[in-house]
Nucleic acid binder design. Structure first.
Length: 568
RNA sequence: GUCCCCAUCGUCUAGAGGUCAGGACUCCGGCCUUUCAAGCCGGCAACACGGGUUCGAUUCCCGUUGGGGACGCCA
């Protein structure tokens, strides 16, 4: 009888969930769903220095927002109910709480002389590595020939600082990867890696193997950067008498420039910008950043490119320095106004394709999460790395938004506003808000665009005397013509002042009647009005534009235009 | 430097010996129209190179080149 299917996502809580991690989580989730197995979430917080409770919460939130519900793992309340738990009793799911299990495994290795204490300091090892590099050699740690096991064990027991290293078998290790095929690693490139750190915590390699066994993980789906770790894990499994899971390594996700998309990209960009700003104006920059940042933290971060700042700190740097940091975290896309199902769909296509065509012979590439859960498979995961194409993501987003019902779009948009732009909602009430949302639907690629300062909805959100007039539009539609748009405005104002009801259809009809009475095309009336009301030559349909603003604001704006708009 | 992985339009990809090499995104036209969008129609654009194998290679093999990843007491 075959083992039940269990997949897992095992992030380390050192920052937000980024796109690469989200894709890994998604594929694990989809595979578990497709195979009727369980999807498990485990928090890998064995790095005491870099883990934080905030980061854990952030990752759970991001996962829940994406709709990747986990069957086992930390308990969490989502919009659709609780997720997580420990039905099979395989928890806890925080590695920091499982230390005794790792110790037991390590002890069993030590007893059988499969692991041993090593006393080199990090500095010594560093020197050895540099030396090897300089001599164009590869550094591999192997236990010395004359190693005195008893003496080493005694020194360790006596409290001398040490790590425990695993005795990597001196043989070639073959890995069967479900995506990449057979891969073999020569004995000469494997070394005695650390299984227990100086601080007593297990390393990732040890912990992952122990936990996957204890939790019955059957399929390990992870990024290709882990490929080289696999022989270590396999060797450990064999030494410990564990089952060997199915391995599948996912292609890497790239930035548009071809570099690997990394959770550290934002820090990288910010660090660069801060350095530049510092070079230009040291004191001024420091003063500006000090307003909401701890400068000692900042200096440490500047000095060590492996450290990451919190999202909040990064955000304030972004703001203070007027930068635009690259979006790589799930939260960036949420704030950017993308629907979770759009993000999920797009992520799914980064490395996977259905291979199906529709009736017209077009590739099927739009998938709801539930469809992914049915259709996803390892066989159709590609081997080539993929660039993250924001333009295509945007197109997906626009198409999805446009395909929603007016009510669904509005609900999603209001939800986004409540979280990120509550002010905007206060400018628009009742039917004006409904009309605004409906008018924005085909004009928005994301939920953030309706309220964007230069977006299609800006005209309605700005004060009646706060918008500027585009000189080109004024020249063309207000100043030119016989009669000029400007000359037409008073009549339009008077008509509008009396019009009942003040609604799109009636407005369009009334404006059409004015045009017809004067023997003009609709454009001769609509465009001047548009410019007067919005300052620009482009806006939603005329009736909608006026109805969204409402009679009062329309009249006020026409007056202002007549009084203040300069002639070109 | 060592090891590992990868290679079809600019990007994401379909293709599993014989196809006009298909689709999507981007870009460019056109239609629609009171503007901007949306929508509809159309267009540009690819098998990295060199050897094999084969009647026939985008497809199989080898090499070259190019890209990427890993070489932590991070995960």
């Amino acid at each position: 009888m075959s083992e039940p299917v269990v997949t897992r996502f095992a992030p380390s809580p050192t920052g937000h969930l980024h796109v690469g991690g989200a894709r890994t989580a998604l594929f694990n989730w989809a595979l578990a769903r497709q195979l009727g197995g369980r999807f498990l979430l485990r928090i890998e917080d064995t790095d005491q220095a870099r883990s934080s409770a905030d980061a854990v919460r952030g990752i759970l939130e991001d996962l829940a927002w994406l709709g990747l519900d986990w069957d086992e793992g930390p308990e969490f309340e989502t919009a659709t109910g609780p997720v997580g738990g420990d039905e099979r009793g395989v928890g806890p799911f925080f590695q920091s709480e499982r230390k005794d299990r790792y110790d037991a495994a390590i002890d069993s290795l030590i007893e059988r002389d499969l692991a041993y204490p090593a006393f080199e300091s990090p500095e010594e090892l560093d020197a050895l590595r540099r030396e090897a590099r300089a001599a164009k050699r590869n550094f591999r740690y192997r236990r010395a020939d004359g190693f005195d096991r008893d003496a080493a064990l005694r020194r360790a027991r006596d409290g001398e600082p040490h790590v425990m290293r695993f005795r990597m078998p001196e043989e070639e290790i073959e890995v069967e990867d479900r995506i990449l095929g057979q891969i073999s690693f020569g004995e000469d490139q494997l070394d005695d890696f650390v299984v227990r750190k100086r601080d007593g915590f297990p390393t990732y390699h040890l912990a992952v193997v122990v936990d996957d066994e204890a939790m019955g993980v059957s399929h390990v789906l992870r990024g290709q950067e882990h490929l080289g770790n696999t022989p270590r894990h396999v060797a450990l499994q064999r030494a410990l008498g564990y089952r060997e899971p199915v391995y599948a390594h996912l292609p890497v996700i790239f930035n548009p420039d071809g570099s690997k998309m990394s959770k550290r990209d934002k820090d990288k960009a910010a660090r660069l910008a801060v350095r530049e700003a510092l070079a230009e104006d040291e004191d001024g920059t420091r003063a500006r950043l000090a307003e909401d940042l701890d400068l000692s933290v900042l200096d440490g971060w500047l000095a060590d490119k492996k450290t990451q700042l919190s999202g909040g700190d990064l955000g304030s740097i972004e703001q203070r320095l007027g930068l635009e940091l690259p979006g790589i975290d799930v939260e960036d896309f949420r704030r950017g106004g993308y629907l979770p199902e759009v993000v999920v769909n797009f992520l799914a296509l980064l490395g996977w394709s259905s291979g199906r065509k529709d009736a017209e012979g077009k590739d099927v590439e739009r998938f709801a999460p539930s469809e992914l859960a049915k259709e996803f498979n390892l066989e159709r995961v590609g081997r080539g790395n993929a660039k993250f194409d924001r333009a295509k993501l945007l197109a997906f987003s626009q198409e999805t938004l446009g395909g929603q019902s007016d009510a669904a779009f509005q609900a999603a948009w209001e939800g986004w506003c409540t979280r990120y732009e509550p002010e905007a909602l206060r400018c628009l009430e009742g039917s004006a808000r409904d009309r605004f949302a409906t008018a924005m639907k085909p004009r928005s690629r994301t939920l953030a665009e309706p309220t964007a300062p230069d977006g299609p909805g800006a005209f309605a959100l700005v004060g009646d005397d706060a918008y500027g007039f585009d000189p080109k539009a004024v020249g063309k539609f207000l100043d030119k013509g016989e009669p000029s748009g400007r000359q037409l405005l008073p009549e339009l104002r008077d008509t509008l002042a009396e019009l009942e009801p003040f609604e799109p259809e009636a407005i369009e009809a009334a404006m059409g009647a004015v045009a017809e009475a004067r023997g003009l095309g609709m454009g001769k009336v609509a465009q001047p009005l548009r410019v007067a009301l919005t300052g620009r030559a482009a806006s939603p349909a005329l009736g909608d534009t006026l109805a969204i603003l409402g009679r009062e604001r329309v009249l006020r704006r026409i007056e202002r235009c007549l009084a203040d708009c300069p002639t070109t």
